[in-house]
């Protein structure tokens, strides 16, 4: 069975950060539902061909963040209470960070603030096609 996660081991971004973000995204989007069991550490390591201790670290951090819970002998599961909310907040943090990078990039190549806002409006119009009031504001 193909894994629902993918990582790019050759990226300069540590694998564990990529995987934590992916699991949170999957929970936020409902690809993984509350109570659903995650693969074992060994299974996910083999599915993705990555170090098992790296996967173990991902699970520990997700547990600490309240997204999953692990019970010895049974496995790791998406948390019933609060797991989705935490994952959704984490996913919006990712969006905020991406937006921040985009704005920094715009500034670093000399785009003026007003022009940056115009670019942002254009992107909004593209991805939120129904919301005309945003453009008219």
């Amino acid at each position: 069975m193909p894994s629902i996660f993918t990582v790019d081991p050759h990226s300069g971004v540590p694998i564990y950060l990529q995987l934590i973000e992916q699991v949170k995204r999957s929970v936020a989007l409902g690809v993984l539902t509350p109570g659903e069991q995650l693969p074992t550490v060994k299974q996910l390591a083999l599915d993705l061909t990555i170090n098992a201790n790296t996967v173990g670290r991902v699970y520990r951090e997700l547990e600490r963040d309240g997204v999953i819970e692990t019970s010895p002998g049974r496995g790791s599961f998406v948390r019933d209470n609060g797991g989705v909310g935490r994952a959704t907040r984490a996913a919006s943090d990712v969006a905020a960070a991406a937006l921040d990078t985009a704005v920094r990039e715009a500034k670093s190549i000399g785009i003026a603030a007003d022009d940056a806002i115009a670019l942002f409006r254009k992107a909004l119009a593209r991805w939120y096609p129904g919301s005309h009031d945003m453009e008219n504001r």
């Binding site: 550490v41 060994k42 390591a45 083999l46 061909t49 990555i50 170090n51 098992a52 201790n53």
Partner: peptide
């Protein structure tokens, strides 16, 4: 080559 990596990863997980 991928089998070798899988063997290494599997053995280490054990």
């Amino acid at each position: 080559q991928r089998h070798v990596l899988d063997l290494i990863i599997g053995e280490s997980a054990g």
